[in-house]
């Protein structure tokens, strides 16, 4: 799984951080998404998929690596 985030689209709702804190964080200056890992551990895939589905800004894209 390959994860990309769109920081321009991000609205800082923080839901990805709540669901998958090992993969997503928020930038201290403005709360915008920061990717901690673009190829997360398979154990995290289900959470990452949920975070992408829930994101209100459609800012998380998943592709097969």
């Amino acid at each position: 799984m390959k994860v990309t985030v769109d920081q321009d689209a991000c609205t800082g709702s923080g839901q990805c951080v709540l669901i998958a804190p090992e993969v997503f964080d928020q930038r201290d200056t403005d709360g915008i998404v920061v990717l901690l890992s673009d190829s997360p551990d398979p154990l995290r895939h289900e959470d990452v998929r949920e975070a992408a589905r829930i994101c209100p800004a459609l800012a998380i894209t998943l592709t097969q690596s």
């Binding site: 800082g12 928020q26 403005d30 915008i32």
Partner: peptide, 13 residues
């Protein structure tokens, strides 16, 4: 305007 406030509502904050 929203980005002037997003830092204050960050999960860790």
């Amino acid at each position: 305007h929203r980005r002037r406030l997003t830092a204050d509502f960050m999960v860790k904050k």
